[in-house]
Simulated assay, not measured.
Amino acid sequence: MSAEVLERASLNTATGVIAPLIAPREVELLGRIGSLETRLAQNSREIEAAQAIRYRVFVEEMGSQVGPDLVQQRREIDSWDAYCDHLLVLDRALEGDIEDQIVGTYRILRHEVAAAHGGFYSGSEFEVERLVARHPAKRFMELGRSCVLPPYRSKRTVELLWQGCWAYALRHQIDVMFGCASFPGIQPEVHALALSFLHNSVRAKGEWEVAARPELYREMDLMPSEAINAKQALMAMPPLIKGYLRLGAMIGSGAVIDQAFNTTDVLIVLPISSISGRYVSYYGADAGRFAS
C-alpha cells in the first residue's frame, strides 16, 4: 500500500469544518489497478476537484442545470457535499497535482451522518424514510453522484469504484446500499422497455418495498409483460444500473423526473446479504482483491 504526505488543510466531511493537519499522515488506498487508485478525498481541494469532474459530466455532457455562480466556478455542488464522504478514482500516471489526477468520483452518505443532517439525499424523490424505519437494526449507506470522465469509462475503473464502495461498506458495517440511478432525459416513455423490465422483474417487494414520493411518481410499467424482451431490456440499460443488477440489486416502485439534472431516476436497493457470492469472492470478503 502506498502512502502520501498531505500538507494542506483537511476537510471533515461529516461536519464541513476545515481543520489543519497536525502532522503528515498516511492515506489509505481502497484499491489499485495499474496506474489507477481509489480512496476517499482527504481535503477540501480534492473535494472541489471531484465537484469539477461532476460539472464536466453532469452539466457540460448531460445538460444538468446549475446556478450562475456554479457555472462561474465550474463545479457541481449541493448542500450534502459538506458531510458526505467522496470516493475518488485517480490516475497516478497523469502529470500534475493530485487534484489533476482525479478521473472519477462517487458520493457516500452513511446512516448516522444522514440522521444528524436531515436525512438522505434520495429522500427528496423516494420514500426512503419508510424503508429505513422498517429496518431499525440495519445500517444504510447511500451512493450517489457517480461519474467518470469519458476516457476512463472502462471495466477497470468501474471495478475500482465498486472496490472502494465495498471496502467502505465493510469498514462501517453497512447492511444496505441504496441510491438513485438515472436514465438520460425526462421522458420515461423513451425507456419503456428497460423501465418495464425493472418493474416486472426486479421490483423491491415485501420488507424492501419502497416507492417514489406520490407527488413525483411516474409509472414504470409501460409495456405488457409478454412484450418485454429481457435481453434487449438489459442492453438498453445505463451501465451503472446494469452493474447494480448484476450485483443483485432491486428497484423501487415508480420513477421520478429530475428536471434540473435532465434525468429519469429510479431507486436502487442492494442489501449486502443479496450481493451475489461470486462478486463477494471476486472483490474479496475482506475487500482485499485490489487493495494492494
Rank of each mutant, 00 (worst) to 15 (best):
173 Q>V: 11
201 S>M: 14
168 Y>W: 12
129 E>W: 03
104 G>P: 02
47 I>T: 09
279 Y>S: 05
174 I>F: 12
1 M>W: 06
85 D>M: 07
220 M>N: 09
201 S>G: 07
27 V>S: 04
87 L>C: 04
204 A>V: 01
114 A>Y: 01
93 A>H: 09
57 V>Y: 09
96 G>I: 04
125 E>A: 01
250 M>C: 15
64 S>W: 02
220 M>V: 06
25 R>Q: 09
18 I>C: 08
161 L>G: 05
171 R>V: 07
230 A>T: 15
252 G>F: 09
195 L>S: 03
11 L>K: 01
214 P>Y: 11
253 S>G: 13
193 L>A: 10
144 G>Q: 08
220 M>E: 13
281 S>F: 04
86 H>K: 12
228 I>W: 11
181 A>I: 09
62 M>I: 07
138 K>A: 02
17 V>T: 08
30 L>M: 04
173 Q>H: 13
19 A>G: 01
177 M>F: 14
288 G>C: 10
234 L>S: 14
189 E>A: 13
170 L>D: 12
206 G>V: 03
198 L>M: 12
173 Q>L: 05
14 A>K: 11
83 Y>V: 07
169 A>M: 09
133 A>W: 00
14 A>P: 00
64 S>V: 05
122 S>A: 09
137 A>F: 00
265 D>W: 05
261 F>R: 04
219 E>V: 14
248 G>I: 15
241 I>C: 13
79 S>V: 08
143 L>T: 07
234 L>F: 15
49 A>W: 07
109 L>E: 06
157 T>N: 08
128 V>D: 00
12 N>C: 08
7 E>F: 09
180 C>S: 14
267 L>G: 07
49 A>V: 06
35 S>G: 05
213 R>L: 15
57 V>N: 10
1 M>P: 11
158 V>F: 13
100 D>E: 11
135 H>Y: 02
227 A>N: 14
184 P>K: 11
75 R>T: 07
40 L>Q: 06
225 S>L: 13
3 A>I: 05
199 H>M: 09
263 T>G: 08
259 Q>E: 15
8 R>K: 07
180 C>Y: 10
228 I>D: 13
174 I>E: 09
255 A>R: 04
1 M>N: 04
111 H>D: 13
150 P>Q: 09
37 E>A: 06
278 R>N: 11
192 A>K: 11
260 A>M: 14
213 R>G: 05
161 L>R: 04
168 Y>I: 08
105 T>K: 05
251 I>G: 02
38 T>V: 05
68 P>M: 06
116 A>E: 08
228 I>F: 13
112 E>I: 00
213 R>H: 05
198 L>Q: 04
86 H>T: 05
87 L>W: 01
284 G>Y: 13
104 G>W: 01
94 L>N: 03
219 E>M: 10
180 C>A: 15
115 A>I: 01
226 E>C: 15
9 A>D: 14
183 F>A: 07
228 I>R: 12
123 G>D: 04
244 Y>M: 15
222 L>C: 12
283 Y>G: 03
236 A>G: 15
231 K>M: 15
126 F>R: 01
